[in-house]
């Protein structure tokens, strides 16, 4: 396969909550993720139990997969999910350390001490029986992410890939999800995606 095509993208970061570059909600330093949830009129109580990583992933994937009813038009095994970050599940890890130092480890928190849980949450939400991989990169590296997506789409039966960088540093969201397709009009080059961040 020579190239992949960008179908749509969603972002949650210091610039706000955006779909295909258009701001849907400007950034707000307090309860930003909750505000997106309310604005999008999501009714999914599990959201409130999730850690920041999962909340970001859920909100950003929701807007992409619901756009033009995409999720209704594809088979449940056609979209692979490849996410990466640098910090793994650091926030939940630190909460777990605090909890067990006080002899109060909590299963509700412990389960979030794995970075791939966000992929599971998205699959549960949309009933996706597809491949999920979580990678750890020291830095947000579009080229490396694209390479993994290209390998996956050229060697498996998936038709699309939701490719993402998802991190939160000092509680600031930094989530960029790209829906890549084997066909399309806008080539998903490193340069093009880089310009969107």
């Amino acid at each position: 396969m020579d190239s992949l095509y960008l179908q749509s993208f969603a972002q949650i970061d210091a610039k706000g909550f955006r779909l295909n570059g258009k701001t849907l909600l400007p950034y707000h330093s307090t309860d930003f993720l909750k505000k997106i949830y309310q604005q999008q009129k999501l009714q999914y109580p599990k959201f409130h139990k999730m850690d920041t990583l999962c909340q970001m992933g859920l909100l950003a994937s929701e807007i992409i997969l619901k756009e033009d009813n995409l999720i209704e038009s594809i088979e449940s095994h056609e979209i692979a999910l490849l996410f990466a970050n640098a910090q793994s599940s650091l926030q939940s890890d630190q909460t777990h350390i605090l909890n067990f130092s006080e002899n109060q480890a909590s299963p509700a928190n412990f389960v979030y001490t794995l970075p791939n849980i966000v992929l599971g949450e998205i699959c549960i939400r949309h009933k996706l029986y597809s491949e999920t991989n979580f990678y750890i990169f020291e830095n947000f590296d579009i080229e490396k992410l694209l390479k993994q997506a290209t390998i996956l789409l050229s060697t498996t039966q998936h038709k699309m890939c939701l490719l993402g960088w998802i991190d939160s540093i000092e509680e600031k969201p930094n989530c960029h999800l790209f829906l890549l397709n084997k066909t399309g009009t806008v080539q998903a080059t490193k340069k093009h995606l880089q310009a969107l961040i």
């Binding site: 999910l81 389960v111 992929l119 599971g120 699959c123 549960i124 491949e131």
Partner: peptide
């Protein structure tokens, strides 16, 4: 080899 999510429950 293949990897598939069961979309059921996180734990």
């Amino acid at each position: 080899g293949a990897c598939v999510n069961d979309a059921n429950h996180i734990s």
